[in-house]
């Protein structure tokens, strides 16, 4: 009885607008991506720990890590890790700029956000090209 009344009240009372109400904007999407990349890096740190512990364990364990990172799945994960790290890094710098109260103008905030996205993709590509050049091309 009381439940039914409560349910009706919940349905009719004005709700505060949430994500689904707004037209998707770049700043908003990049804010979400910043959190997603942060969460991805959280679990990605397992890879770093695995790699370092394997190096401490010895050549066999280290070889297994190197083998895995060389597989297609390993490379895809590493590529994702690289992009997530750089995107989160650039996004973090943008947020630090915003923390000082600067860069909130209508064009500035869009420009900063777009620069983060383009920069993260560009830098990731650059790092991977350098990486492949260092190891002698795609194998």
């Amino acid at each position: 009885m009381a439940d039914a009344k409560e349910a009706r009240l919940q349905a009719t009372r004005p709700l505060s607008p949430h994500l689904s109400i707004y037209r998707p904007m770049l700043t908003m999407m990049m804010s979400i991506v910043h959190r997603i990349t942060g969460a991805a890096l959280y679990f990605g740190m397992l890879l770093l720990a695995w790699w370092l512990v394997a190096a401490a364990l010895g050549p066999n364990a280290y070889g297994r890590v190197q083998w895995f990172m060389g597989t297609l799945i390993g490379r895809v994960i590493l590529l994702g890790f690289t992009w997530a790290l750089i995107h989160h890094l650039l996004g973090g710098i943008r947020h630090l700029i915003w923390d000082t109260g600067r860069g909130f103008g209508p064009s500035e905030r869009e420009w900063l956000t777009l620069a983060g996205l383009v920069g993260s993709i560009g830098l990731t590509a650059l790092l991977w090209i350098v990486g492949y050049l260092m190891t002698g091309g795609v194998r």
């Binding site: 740190m45 397992l46 770093l48 720990a49 370092l52 512990v53 190096a55 401490a56």
Partner: peptide, 13 residues
């Protein structure tokens, strides 16, 4: 766990 495992590995190395 992730932090200390990585930390220990560097110390060991």
């Amino acid at each position: 766990t992730v932090g200390l495992a990585s930390f220990y590995a560097i110390l060991k190395l």
